[in-house]
Simulated assay, not measured.
Amino acid sequence: MSRPATLPVSAVLARSAKRFAGETPIGRKRRARKMARVLAETHPDAHCELDFETPLQLAVATILSAQCTDKKVNEVTPIVFKRYLSAADYAAADRMEMEAILRPTGFFRAKTDSLIKLGQALEERHEGVLPHTLDELVALPGIGRKTANVILGNAFDVPGITVDTHFRRLVNRFGWVHEEDPVKIEFLVAELIEKRDWTMFSHRIIFHGRRVCHAKKPACGACSLATMCPSYGLGPTEAAPAAKLLKGPRARELAIQVGLDPDLVPAAAIATPDVP
Rank of each mutant, 00 (worst) to 15 (best):
F107R: 08
P273M: 08
L130R: 11
W176T: 04
A239K: 14
S65L: 00
D113Y: 14
Q67T: 03
K117C: 00
I161K: 10
A32H: 08
V275K: 14
I193D: 12
T62Y: 07
V138D: 02
T62V: 14
D135P: 08
C68A: 01
C68Q: 08
P241Q: 12
C213M: 09
E194R: 12
V177P: 07
E186W: 05
G106M: 02
A87V: 03
P249Q: 04
P159T: 04
P241R: 11
P55R: 00
C229S: 08
L152A: 02
G233T: 03
E191A: 14
I161Y: 12
L118P: 06
T237N: 08
E127S: 13
D197K: 07
K34D: 15
I63E: 09
Q120S: 11
L50Y: 12
C68N: 02
F201S: 13
G259F: 00
P236T: 03
A240I: 07
A92I: 01
F20E: 08
H203I: 02
G106V: 00
I206A: 06
S65C: 09
P25V: 00
D181H: 11
L39K: 03
R15N: 13
A239P: 11
G160P: 00
I185S: 05
T133R: 15
G233Y: 01
P249I: 07
H43V: 00
A92S: 14
A61P: 10
A243H: 11
P8C: 05
A100Y: 03
P276T: 08
A226R: 05
Q67V: 01
A5T: 14
T77R: 10
P276F: 00
N154C: 07
P266L: 05
T105R: 01
T54V: 04
D263L: 09
K29Q: 15
V80F: 03
Y90H: 12
T147I: 11
G128D: 05
I161S: 06
T112V: 09
R168L: 13
A148M: 09
I193E: 10
C48L: 01
N172I: 06
E253D: 14
N74D: 06
G142W: 04
K72V: 08
C220A: 09
H166N: 15
A59P: 06
K71N: 07
A226I: 07
A139K: 09
G22C: 06
R204C: 01
M200A: 04
A32K: 05
N172T: 07
P276V: 01
A59I: 10
R145D: 13
E41W: 02
P44Q: 06
Q57T: 02
A243F: 05
H43W: 15
A240G: 10
Q67F: 02
A110T: 14
S114C: 14
